[in-house]
Design a protein around this nucleic acid. Structure first.
Lengths: 201, 201, 201, 201
DNA sequence: TAGTAACCGAGACGGTACGTCTCGTCTTTAC
DNA sequence: GTAAAGACGAGACGTACCGTCTCGGTTACTA
């Protein structure tokens, strides 16, 4: 067996790539991730199945790519640094909460989460392209606050971001309660207390 | 299509039920949830496929039932109330952390999480039979601490449990860092600060 | 394994027997033999499946029994002996032709023929209860004609009945041409010529 | 349900087609038609089930095709015209009788007959590809004899072929008596008498 | 500008599993 | 103590997709 030579990205049809991602987006919204099939994507996109298999390793990768294509360049990672930590965190959490509360986003996000949690390759890509950048800017904001003496000088920044996003994610994933701005604000307050905000100021 | 009449549970074969759950447990450990098939479960259990379809609505339901059958009666929900809130929470989190750090448990738990997150019926059953009882005993412990004046009298108990379990779950789900007792202990401290523990004492 | 004891016919429920045969008749007409199932017969008859398996060896046997119950006691075997062989044979063939030309009878008869041709047990029962008696009365009529000098004294009586019924059956089975009285009459003439009728008179 | 579009015969794999027919032939001989399954044919042929369902409408059609593939190009239709009608008919019937008397052929032929009698589509194909050509060459031989003045000038040729093949088929189908050359020869004589052979000479 | 190599749509292929159906047996319930 | 009801192990059904593999037919680089 000669090892399959990698396809030449230079010759890749942009037309097909876009059609596949669009078809995947539509179909995942229509039938859900579980009932989504490569064959249906190919048919909807007017593309041969081989074209999908050539460029994506799995169904999850296609959908994830489609999701990324939509998410990547909205400036959702922008976390301001106005000097007011609480306000900046609220600015970050409130749109996130709005997203999670949107039924369409909820459906897609759940399907992707299920795949990411299960498929190591997708997990890695999710970490690299979405989650780690988000965590990093957040950590950076906490670092800035620590340097400004707004939180404890020995505050664990990793723990800080987990305290911020973890409870929100948990509440969303298991539908434990409403996702709204008030809830987000209360969470921000709790996190700041956990980080001894003010006690050092 | 006439709606299928529900089978009579009184006639259910306990022998078959147990064999199916055992086979499902073994197979999910051997091949993983994704490659698990109903046919393989039936074959391993020495059971007709129809017997599985008669009593469970989906592959996820079978595996979940098998997981429950194993989890339900280990007293994992016991959360002590010694009067020392921090110690009691550490007592609760440490074994949980140990479980999540175990590769075999991790694999099964991820597969089930993926299903629960995606399948509303499984979600409901998970909430009813595992998650809600756990959250309730934890909330109860916080209530006891609040009455004892160990945390702020206006502490939001729902938020409290989410602050406790959310960051841990988040760290586990996305493999954000090591899961060990030290980490659990730091989390407990942060949560207590968030709840103004001691400041009111 | 203890050999199953034969059911005691004395205890047989006439009510169930009749209900099964009626249900089989109706269903074979509604869905055809191929799509007929034991389960459907039992359900329609309001009878347990076991009751059918207890008394009949196969689906074909049930339907055959139902057919027999309807056919056996109509005097279709009556073949007159008026002295006029040609007329008597026409009297025999014409109603047979009418039956075969009836679409409802055709459908059932084809299904049964297919079973009889394939299942030796059914074949034997068909021979014993329907076909052999018919052939015998026909043979007897030819014998009478031979003794009366109306056909050749060395005429082969078995061949005679096959010459009479074979062409008709063949035409019916493969739908080779119309089945009507004129056709039956021409066949009778040909058979009589084959038997040297008249040449000896 | 969108009606399935017909597959493109140009792309059909001759390799698969031949393997399926061979497997069907073998299996029908081994287990009989009734116990033959599409799954077994596919497995034996090393072929996906879908490949069978793609190209054949039913189990009967596969077996029939296998039978045809074996029968079609043996010159069994050759019916000589030596001028001696009786001899030519004997030449035609004797090998037919030999076939029917062969247990292996008998078994397959019964199974196919059962299907043909029951399934209109198979019936049509049988007529078109095997029976009608046979009847036509036979009719043609009778026509030739009629023109030669060997049978009655008003002889009904359709009746003639039915008189020839019908009794034989009847005797075979219901196992009414031995199938041998003597029997075939007697039948030929009877048919010729029925057609007034010689009386016009 | 011709040749050629890769991608492309299309879809048949060998497979696997699906969820359903029916078989014939076995067990339980109720009359 | 019989028979209805129906769960059971078994396994074939016909369908849906999987991922691979030819097929021609465009592209778009190279010679």
């Amino acid at each position: 067996m000669v090892p399959r030579t990698a396809p030449d990205p230079a010759r890749r049809s942009e037309r097909s790539r876009a059609a596949v991602l669009a078809a995947a987006s539509e179909l995942v919204a229509e039938v859900g991730f579980g009932k989504l099939t490569i064959e249906a994507i190919a048919a909807r996109a007017g593309v041969g199945k081989q074209t999908i298999y050539r460029w994506w390793p799995s169904k999850g990768a296609v959908v994830f790519d489609a999701f990324l294509a939509a998410s990547e360049h909205d400036g959702s990672l922008a976390l301001p640094d106005t000097g007011d930590l609480a306000a900046d965190l609220r600015t970050a959490l409130r749109p996130a909460v709005d997203n999670l509360a949107d039924p369409a986003f909820d459906r897609t996000a759940r399907a992707l989460t299920a795949e990411i949690v299960t498929d190591p390759a997708l997990h890695d890509e999710y970490r690299a392209r979405l989650l780690d950048p988000l965590l990093e800017v957040t950590r950076e904001r906490f670092r800035s606050a620590r340097e400004a003496g707004q939180i404890a000088p020995d505050a664990d920044l990793d723990l800080a971001v987990e305290l911020l996003y973890g409870p929100l994610h948990y509440r969303w994933l298991y539908r434990l309660g409403p996702l709204d701005h008030a809830q987000a604000d209360r969470l921000v307050e709790a996190v700041l207390r956990a980080l001894n905000a003010g006690s050092a100021g």
